[in-house]
Each structure stands twice: as structure tokens, then as C-alpha cells.
Design a protein around this nucleic acid. Structure first.
Length: 926
RNA sequence: GGGCGAUUAGCUCAGCCGGUUAGAGCGCCACCUUUACACGGUGGAUGUCGGGGGUUCGAAUCCCUCAUCGCCCACCA
């Protein structure tokens, strides 16, 4: 095989449609891709031949959003690009269907709630179906077993997943649907439990009975990563504690209802105002409980009165003081957020006990009101409460401030307490390529700022259960210190159904028997393992082992910037602990979608655009074009104008390709009904203008490739698109007559070689554009590809173009000639535009005054230029030096030659002495 | 309070490791139905590059500062 055969492109040309359009292409090609398995991943058995993508599993909430199509398009462009570069692309889809959002929807949709004491009922029928929107009162909700509830969760999410899948398919995501997982599915459960058991065995997972953040609405513990600070209105209350002699000492608090939980007053050790009192005792108002005044550096002198009431627990600072100063625990808040029902024994004062009885069982809100009234009545409050806005921690999905509750929870090391691990995770962050790079800072900030390990247990129902049981002693008390674990080959298990080795079901919850760990893992504890899930880390068998080796560590994690601290970080944590490496080499971070008023689109704002609408209106390729024109990491404005441009680009590609392929094959009605073959050999490109076009193509291919290698899809698209329009507007216009083999205007018939050169360049060019645009406009490019490569498979499996092919065709020509010829053409069109006549009007004669370099460059393309501009008479090029002479003399004729000196500097081509002919007679409309 | 982005034509955005007259598309104006395309074509007008300072022969580009918008982290007495 010689070099020239190596790079020439053979085409199988089909008959062409008389009219083309983008509508209908989606249905046509989606079916073909499914049938042909165009996007199916085939394990090549070696890591270097694979590009693997850790697709974000969207929360299936039943609500779709254009933001979804935005970021997923970015990833799809990369997937398609890598596939065309010969990689087997593992591009799976996942659904995040476990967790609270699903639970809440199921409760409302079916009108049920979990009662863990109920047994599974295989014939359970929920009282409602599809009641969303209508408010089902809590009292109307029918209790059901956890397993029944989970079945309902699965039923509902299956419906939502179908909606999402339809959208993704419509959008043209090149996902291998056979690799789909959902986070509550069997395989992810196995991964989550296996990874947890290994963390446990290595001592990275542990349980602790400690104060922690607690959501009173959902009645579950929450993790640091799920916190959200929000402004919350409150009041400062100035309250008097008293020394033995009755002297008051004032503290300020926004939470007077916690007065009875006070264990100390705390001031800064350097605070001169309070230094004399450290170590002294004071008594609390209302309850007359003695508490010490202590020093701690976390107290801030300029906050409130400078001395704070430490309660167990009002906030995380209280916890810090309590821990550091070994203070007693006096909890008064229950897990449901209400005050405890029994008057605590540390209140001994009879009147104090009476006062406490008045707030028993109340919410913090009404207890606060009661306590304030009591304080005012007792004369222990100074002045009126002063309103304030303060930042308060909320669970990101909750709407009541978090309380701090002591409970037994499971934790996983994440560098929040282990310094060595923290440093290691920072280091992992440095190894990872972030796109854009500045996102790395957010990761580092977060890891540096961790103040505790990752709380992974949740007191909820729909999620992956901990694979644990506890032995019960003769009194029925669990031995938490020595959990019972299943062997890995039993996974996944549900401890509330399955039985630990060596026990029988009858022993469940019996003295000397066992009990299941009731908690489930947080959603992120499963989601943090998506790389292990999609690469089949936990699946047994040689085939899966090979799969894992070919795909892990993965290549790409695309995700939203808002979940760097959760998903990105926790995934790195898990892979570091389990696999001792980064889970992927690259992470791409998407920005937000803003509505046309630059407000972030969100459901609560009511400005969400449902993605089906623009796809319906403009077509999937057009919507993708809009998404593709935004850079990673930057917010993008929802812009239908951009979609219109995308649609226009797609239509142009269809028409230009049809036109180029039709040349020389048309019958008298311009209809192409016959199939044909063609060989586009770069060596047949012989004309200067054609070579210039190919030189430009080589550069564009090179630039686009470089941009895509750097995950800069928008830059690649811009380069390709720019040249595509230049190719259509200038190059095709300049050569179409030559390609036809006719020369109507100049009267000189082009040589067969010149004709072939033009046709070859058109073929090579449009073949290249189909490939270059394939990642962006998959439907349109597949359509045009099918016209020129019938029976050769999909463009999406065709090789990405190489600069070498076009450089060979360019034969060392400069790309500049194309631009220069384009300028000349523009100048000639300008004559007609200014004269307000049809472009068909012949130019009888014209003089083009150009600078010296341009003069020499344009000479070889003059024939094409004259032909394209319909110059029927003389076209003369004159050098700038001669031009100056001309302007030295007064001149006659047209007035568009004003200000010669300036004009000479600003324009490279000046038209003079032009003479137009008669416009041709208008043809009657057909 | 600490940090990260953004700020360029009416709109959406390029350009930013300093260097000729700051670009594109949309929109706008005028014209043209031309053997691919009216879902079209051709031509044209449009900017104190957020403000202010500085470095430099030269700044949209580098430095300082301020402002506005968005986001992240911290902030519950």
C-alpha cells in the first residue's frame, strides 16, 4: 500500500433527496443506532484502549430541567470524540433513586408511611396512586412495612427513569444503555455493602455515640457536607445569671428555651471583664441550677455580651466546649425537636421544676415563648428581645434549623480527624485534572475545612442497609462493639430480612439472639462508589475482573460544581481507601443555567424550562449546539437565539453536503437518483485555491483536536463552525463553476484536472466537516454521512480526521489564499450590493487595487474569483504602488473612492473602474 | 470575614502568558429570489473592552484598588 492510497477517502454515494431538512432525523437515526449497537461498549481487554466515563446519576424526581441537557451534552461530546479516536467508550447511565427525595414523593404519591414493626405483606395495596399535587394528610397515610415501602419506591422511580431515558435518547446521548444501573439496585447495593465491610475491617468505618447534627423533620442525622447555611430570624435575649450574693451577670442568647440545658458560662481567657470570675459559680434564672464560669478560646469577646451560655447542645461550639471542658450532658431536646417530657433531675428547685413542666413536650418555638414570659415575670431579663438575622445551619433538604442530638451513628474516615489521610486526599486533588482548573480550589478548601469524619448512617428507610447485626445478651441488650457481618459472597443482604451466620430467624430480637442494624447508609455512601459500580468492581467472575481492569481507574468524572464537596470528594475518599488511587484522571465541572434574566434556574423560582420544549421546537442538534457553545465551569444563559443558530448550521450542513455530492451526478431536473462511488485522493488536489482550502482544513482539524483533548468543546466547535461557514460562503462559491466543469462568465473551460481538484476538495471538505461536527450534531452528521458512506456504518464510529490527510492535499500551500480570495470576492460582491443589483449581474470590467503581496497571491485564483463574481470582461489586479499614482490624479466616475490615503491603509483591496452589465432577465417562478 | 468566577457592540459570547485599525453570531439597516440552502444570500452601521490608579515605547490583556453580579467556605452566644 502506498502513502497516497493510505490517506485517500473512498465514498459510496447514495441517491440524494430533492429537499432536505432536520426534522425527522432524530427518530430515523435513534432507531438505527439502537439496532446497530453503535454505542455498545465492547471490552477490548486492555485499559489503554478504553475511555471510561463516570456519568452522574441524576436524582429521578420526575422533574426535568434544561440544565440536565446542558451538562450531559458536554460529556456526550467528549464521549463521541473519544469513540471516533478509536477508544471503546464506557459511557453508562445511572439513576440516583434512593434517599429522601424519593421517600417523600412515595409518601405523597401513594399515601403510605413506614412502620418498621410491621411484617412484609406481599399483597399490600397502597391507598392512593398518583395523588401528587393533592395533599394527603399524615393521618390518612397507611402504615406499611419497610420492604413494602421500598417496593413502592422502586415502582415510582421506574416510571421516572423511563422519562429521563426518553429525554437522553432524544437528545442523542451516546450512552450504552446496557450498562445502566440505579443506586438502589442489587449491584450497587452489593458494591456499597462490600466496600463498607472492607472499611469496617480496616478500621476506617466506626460507630460512635456522640452529639451530632440532627434534622427534626426527617428525624435523621445529617453529614457536614449536607449542611446549608441560611439566614434565619431570631431575637437576642439579655438574661441575668446571679452570683451567690445576687449580683447579676448578663449573657445574651437567641435560644432562651435551652436555659435549662445550660452547663456553664464561657468567656475568652483573655477577656479582662470576666477574668476575675473564672472558676466561680453562678445560678441560672428560673431553675436555680448552679453552673461554673469557665474560659475557652473559642469564646468571642465581641459577640453578644462576650460571655456565652453553653448548653447541651445549642450549636457546634457548645459541643466543642462540652468536649474540651468535660462538662456534664443535660439534654432537653428530643429527636422530634420537642422538649423532653420528664422534668430533668438536675433541676432540684421546686419552682424551677414547675417552670420546666410548663414547657415539657413543646416545640422549641413555643417553649421559647413560654421561657421568655417566665423570665420577664421573674425579672431576670434585661429589656426587650432584640430582633436579629443570623446564619443558621439547615439540612439542605430541610426547612427547620438543625438541632444537636446525641445518638449512635456510623462514621467513615474522610480526613476530618485523620491528619495523614487529610494530607493524602489533598494530594489526590492535586493529581486530578480539573476542568476548569480553578475548581480545584473548592476541593482543597473543603478538605482543609473538614472538622469531623463522614457520618454515613441515616435513620431512614429507602436506601442501602448496613450489612450488620448485633448479638443480644441475655437481657436483650445489643453488643454494638462487636457487630456481626455476613461473608462477601452473600451480599447484598438486608439484615432485617436476612439472618447472620449461626443464627436462625426465630432468634431475631430475642434475648441471646440478634438484632438488625436498623439504619441505612446515606445516599452519598453509595454514590461515592459509582466508579466501582460501573466498572463491576464487586462482581465475581473472570469476565468481570477483566472488565474492571479495562475500565478502572476511570478517565472522566463529569459533574456539577455544587457537589464537589459531596460527590467528587467522597468518591475520591472511597477510591483512596479501597483502591489506593484516584478514581479517575479528569473531572469536568459544569456551570449553571441562567434564565434570560440571569437568574439561576430552579424549581422554587418557577423559571425552569422543560427540555422537551426546545428540542421539539429547534431539534436536538440545535439544543446541543447551544449547550456546546458554553465553556465548562461557566454559567450559561438559556438562549433560544443560540438554538436557532444551531438549527441553521445543521440545515446548512445538509444543503452544502447535498450540493457538493450532487455535482456531476444530476439529471436535467437537478435530481440525483443514482448511487455512485468516488475516491477523494489528496493527490488530486492541484489548484492553488483548493490547496489553500485544504491547508486551512489541516489547521482547523489540528486546532479542534487540540481543544477537544483539553476538554474545550466550545473552542473546538467555534473553530470548526467558522471554517465551515467560510467554506460554504467563499470556497464553494468560488469553485462551484469549476467543479461543474463550466465557465459561463470567463468563457474558458477548466481542465479535467482542475475539475477533479475542485470535486476532490469539496468531497474531502464535506467528509471532514461531517466527522468534525459529529460530536456536536450527531443526527445531522449521521444523515449527511449516510449519503457519502452508504453501508460503511455510522459516522460516530468513523475515525476522527487527521491533519495529515489535508496537509497532504494542501501540498505546502498557505491557507491565506482562501481568505484573500474571499476578500476579493467580497469586494466584487460589494460593487453589486452598493449598486443594489442582483448578484447575477455581470461585471463587464473591474480593477482591483491590492497590496504587493496580495497581488502575487491572488493571481493564481483570479480565474475562480472572476467566475464566482461573474466577471465577463476584464479583471485587472494592480499593485499598491501603482494605486498611489492613480490617486494622485483627479478622477472621474463613481464616488466610492473617497479619501484615498486612509482607505489605502484600512482596506487591502480597493475596487475601482468597475462597470456593471445588465442584470439577467428574471426567471418566472416555477 | 476568607476565597473563586464574571463584567468587551442592543443581546449571547470569543479574544486575555502585552504588540498592527478590538472580533463573531444574533438583532438592526439596505439590497438581492443567484442551477445547495427564503429554515436563504449579499453588503452595511454599531464599542470611553465595569470605574480609578500604576507598570510599559505600547494595556481589553500584567499589577493595585473600588464597584456590581453569581458562587463556595466560615459565621447559631
Amino acid at each position: 500500500m502506498t502513502d497516497s492510497e493510505d490517506i485517500s477517502i473512498s465514498a459510496n454515494l447514495t441517491p440524494l433527496p430533492d429537499r432536505v431538512g432536520v426534522d425527522g432525523l432524530e427518530d430515523k437515526w435513534r432507531g438505527v443506532w439502537d439496532e446497530d449497537g453503535t454505542y455498545t461498549f465492547h471490552n477490548p481487554g486492555e485499559r489503554s484502549a478504553v475511555y471510561s466515563i463516570d456519568t452522574p446519576p441524576p436524582t429521578v424526581s420526575g422533574h426535568l430541567h434544561v440544565g440536565h441537557v446542558f451538562s450531559y451534552t458536554h460529556t456526550d461530546i467528549i464521549a463521541r470524540y473519544k469513540r471516533m479516536n478509536g477508544f471503546e467508550v464506557l459511557y453508562p447511565m445511572g439513576w440516583d433513586d434512593n434517599g429522601l427525595p424519593t421517600e417523600r414523593r412515595v409518601q405523597n404519591y401513594y399515601g403510605v408511611r413506614v412502620d418498621t414493626s410491621l411484617p412484609y405483606d406481599p399483597d399490600f395495596k397502597p391507598p392512593f396512586e398518583g395523588t401528587e399535587g393533592k395533599k394527603i394528610q399524615a393521618k390518612d397515610q397507611v402504615p406499611c412495612s419497610r420492604r413494602n415501602f421500598i417496593e413502592l419506591c422502586e415502582r415510582l422511580t421506574a416510571q421516572d427513569e423511563k422519562l429521563f431515558e426518553n429525554l437522553w435518547r432524544r437528545l442523542g446521548l451516546s450512552i450504552d444503555w446496557s450498562q445502566t444501573y440505579h443506586t438502589i439496585g442489587e449491584h450497587p447495593r452489593r458494591v456499597a455493602q462490600k466496600a463498607f465491610l472492607r472499611n469496617l475491617a480496616r478500621g476506617e468505618a466506626y460507630q460512635k455515640d456522640a452529639p451530632g447534627l440532627w434534622d427534626v423533620t426527617f428525624q435523621t442525622a445529617v453529614a457536614q457536607a449536607e449542611l446549608e447555611s441560611r439566614e434565619y430570624p431570631g431575637f437576642y435575649h439579655r438574661i441575668a445569671f446571679r452570683f451567690e450574693d445576687g449580683t447579676p451577670i448578663y449573657i445574651e442568647t437567641t435560644r432562651p428555651e435551652l436555659l435549662s440545658a445550660c452547663v456553664a458560662l464561657i468567656a475568652h481567657p483573655d477577656d479582662e471583664r470576666y477574668k476575675p470570675y473564672f472558676g466561680k459559680m453562678v445560678t441560672s434564672p428560673l431553675y436555680n441550677v448552679e453552673v461554673p464560669i469557665l474560659a475557652h478560646p473559642a469564646a468571642e469577646m465581641d459577640k453578644g455580651a462576650g460571655i456565652a451560655m453553653c448548653c447541651t447542645f445549642g450549636d457546634m461550639t457548645d459541643v466543642e466546649w462540652w468536649r474540651d471542658l468535660h462538662l456534664p450532658t443535660r439534654s432537653i431536646i428530643q429527636r422530634n425537636g420537642r422538649i423532653i417530657m420528664d422534668t430533668p433531675d438536675w433541676i432540684r428547685d421546686a419552682q424551677g421544676r414547675e417552670r420546666f413542666a410548663a414547657i415539657e413536650g413543646k416545640t422549641t418555638f413555643s417553649a421559647r415563648k413560654e421561657v421568655v414570659e417566665q423570665l420577664q415575670a421573674a425579672g431576670d431579663m434585661d429589656g426587650e428581645p432584640k430582633p436579629t438575622m443570623r446564619m443558621t445551619n439547615f439540612y439542605e433538604k430541610g426547612d427547620k434549623p438543625l438541632e444537636i442530638v446525641t445518638s449512635r451513628q456510623w462514621y467513615l474516615e474522610n480526613g476530618g480527624t485523620n491528619k495523614r489521610l487529610n494530607a493524602e486526599l489533598i494530594e489526590r486533588g492535586k493529581e486530578l485534572n480539573f476542568y476548569p482548573d480553578f475548581m480545584r480550589v473548592r476541593y482543597e478548601n473543603w478538605v482543609h475545612g473538614l472538622n469531623g469524619d463522614w457520618l454515613i448512617s441515616r435513620q431512614r428507610f429507602f436506601g442501602v442497609p448496613f450489612p450488620l447485626w448485633y448479638a443480644l445478651d441475655e437481657h436483650g441488650e445489643p453488643d454494638y462493639a462487636n457487630p456481626l457481618t455476613p461473608s462477601e459472597d452473600r451480599l447484598p443482604i438486608d439484615p432485617s430480612i436476612d439472618v447472620p451466620e449461626g443464627y436462625s430467624e426465630e432468634q431475631r430480637n430475642q434475648p441471646n439472639g440478634f438484632m438488625a442494624e436498623p439504619d441505612i447508609m446515606d445516599t452519598w455512601a453509595t454514590s461515592s462508589l459509582t466508579p466501582q459500580i460501573v466498572t463491576k468492581w464487586a462482581e465475581p467472575g473472570a469476565e468481570n475482573e477483566s472488565f474492571f481492569k479495562s475500565t478502572f481507574p476511570m478517565d472522566l468524572r463529569p459533574q456539577g460544581q455544587d457537589i464537589i464537596r459531596t460527590w467528587l470528594f467522597s468518591t475520591i475518599d472511597r477510591a483512596d481507601l479501597e483502591n489506593h488511587c484516584l478514581p479517575w484522571a479528569n473531572a469536568t465541572l459544569s456551570g449553571w443555567i441562567l434564565d434570560p434574566d440571569h437568574k439561576k434556574m430552579s424549581k422554587s423560582k418557577g423559571n425552569v424550562v422543560v427540555p422537551n420544549e426546545p428540542i421539539e421546537k429547534f431539534g436536538a442538534d440545535a439544543v446541543r449546539y447551544w449547550a456546546a457553545s458554553a465553556r465548562l465551569g461557566l454559567d450559561a444563559t438559556y438562549d433560544e437565539g443560540q438554538m436557532k443558530i444551531g438549527r441553521r448550521l445543521a440545515i446548512k450542513l445538509l444543503n452544502a453536503t447535498k450540493f457538493a455530492l450532487a455535482i456531476g451526478r444530476e439529471d436535467e431536473n437537478h435530481h440525483v437518483g443514482e448511487a455512485a462511488t468516488a475516491t477523494w485522493n489528496p493527490q488530486d488536489v492541484t489548484e492553488p485555491l483548493d490547496r489553500a482550502a485544504m491547508a486551512k482544513m489541516a489547521k482547523v482539524v489540528y486546532d479542534a483536536t487540540e481543544s477537544l483533548e483539553n476538554y474545550e468543546h466550545s473552542k473546538a466547535l467555534e473553530a470548526i463552525e467558522d471554517f465551515f461557514w467560510q467554506f460554504c460562503d467563499d470556497y464553494i462559491e468560488l469553485v462551484k463553476n469549476r467543479a461543474y466543469g463550466t465557465a459561463e462568465s470567463t468563457g474558458s473551460t477548466p481542465s479535467p484536472q482542475a475539475v477533479k481538484s475542485a470535486r476532490t476538495t469539496l468531497g474531502l471538505g464535506l467528509d471532514a466537516f461531517a466527522r468534525l461536527l459529529a460530536p456536536f450534531l450527531p443526527y445531522t452528521t449521521e444523515e449527511v454521512w449516510s449519503w457519502m458512506h452508504a453501508g460503511e456504518g455510522s459516522v460516530h464510529r468513523a475515525p476522527w480526521p487527521k491533519p495529515l490527510t489535508y496537509a497532504a492535499a494542501a501540498f505546502k500551500a498557505s491557507p491565506d489564499l482562501l481568505a484573500q480570495a474571499g476578500q476579493a470576492l467580497t469586494a466584487l460582491r460589494g460593487i453589486k450590493s452598493k449598486a443594489k443589483v442582483s448578484m447575477k449581474t455581470p461585471i463587464l470590467s473591474v480593477m482591483l487595487n491590492v497590496n504587493d503581496e496580495l497581488h502575487d497571491a491572488l493571481v493564481p485564483a483570479l480565474g475562480d474569483i472572476a467566475e464566482a463574481a461573474r466577471v465577463t470582461g476584464r479583471i485587472t489586479l494592480r499593485k499598491a504602488s501603482d494605486l498611489m499614482e492613480k490617486y494622485a490624479r483627479p478622477k472621474d466616475g463613481a464616488s466610492d473612492d473617497a479619501a484615498p490615503a486612509e482607505t489605502t491603509e484600512e482596506e487591502t483591496i480597493i475596487v475601482s473602474d468597475s462597470e456593471l452589465g445588465e442584470p439577467p432577465a428574471k426567471k418566472p417562478k416555477q
